[in-house]
Design a protein around this nucleic acid. Sequence first.
DNA 1: AAATATAATTAACACTGTTAATATTCCTAA
DNA 2: TTAGGAATATTAACAGTGTTAATTATATTT
Lengths: 212, 212
Amino acid sequence: MGIKERKEKHKEDLRQRILDAAKELFLKDGYDATSIRKIAEKIEFSPTTIYLYYKDKADIMYALHQEGFILLGTQFAVLQHVHEPFERLKAMGRVYMSFALNNPDFYELMFIMKEPIEFVKAHCHGEEWEEGEQAFGALIMTVNHCKEVGYFTKFDTTAFALNIWSLMHGLCALKLQGHLDHMASTKTEIFAGDDWMEKTFSSFVQMLEGLK
Amino acid sequence: MGIKERKEKHKEDLRQRILDAAKELFLKDGYDATSIRKIAEKIEFSPTTIYLYYKDKADIMYALHQEGFILLGTQFAVLQHVHEPFERLKAMGRVYMSFALNNPDFYELMFIMKEPIEFVKAHCHGEEWEEGEQAFGALIMTVNHCKEVGYFTKFDTTAFALNIWSLMHGLCALKLQGHLDHMASTKTEIFAGDDWMEKTFSSFVQMLEGLK
DNA sequence: AAATATAATTAACACTGTTAATATTCCTAA
DNA sequence: TTAGGAATATTAACAGTGTTAATTATATTT
């Protein structure tokens, strides 16, 4: 039955081609401008064909959402080689920030938009979406390691990890949505100099260092 | 020329009626579901009439965005009566959190969505949008007052204020987009109990208290 | 009352996601 | 080899969206 396998492979191929086309459009023009019809045009198929391979637009975007988490996951994975826990924590912050700045569309899809997480809730009830949880798991672990070497000893691990994630996310989100730049350009007397993301992050690190 | 004035007033009235209809739909069904046609139907006018009073949809949403900032501003204004700076800072955090939870659609429009801030950039070049900046100004002032009574003395005021805003925004945004609840429901062993927003905020306050 | 300015409307454009019905292709069994 | 049936792809259509141009109705001024 080699023919059936080839059929299956062909089908899997087309599914991937749809995703690649979607990804290209998405990274170029963003979520809204990535329409089913444009994806179809890119792969030279009829728009409705796409619905034979993906449930709907949210399904396609969820697939990209997953790709994003895998990408962030691989960047986090490298940091497991940094043995000193606090150094690793700082490095994770830097990587998170870089990821957001270098992949703004992915970041938006992964952490800002509602659609993908609602798709998870609606269709992936149960075990799915390990990728996202893994990243948070890595943070929890690192905070615990930090506690072992004397940091944050008075704090609840989960609450502290949420603090860190909230701050990093808030900083990235405010930057990406243009709020930071807007403040810097209107409140010039207070926002002297530039790179306030870096300055804010440094200030946060300084804060954490005081908690040893 | 009393007639001309009445005409002007009538025109201003319709502008307000459009905004009220938009607000009602927006608070009920959110941004996307608030269409020009639905607004028009509500005020019993033709859809295109709306374009005689507002430039486009973003213009209407910017008006609501402003209303949101005025609402938050009034809630902040009350806190000026809290004299002890650190107490005031904590109260501001609580008010910010409550505002986000009680007015999720407003919060999204004000701090999460791109459209309104891009509308500001495109059309309100210059002096406009004091409301938003005022809220941040209040935070800067309070941080400075905290420094005067011995808090955060080693930190740059602007960077520290950005830290606080980032954390509060990140926490609210993660909550509103469903990320917090998702984590709590999948990582049950780590997220025992509930109200992790409150727990995270408490942890943050605990952190700030250590900086005296 | 006629001319003009203002206000509101209809019709249309160019899109969007999505579904039902139809056509085409391909593999299997007689 | 050919007929039947399943899988795949397409066309047509629905119900929307924001927005603009052209047209009509209303009110004001000359």
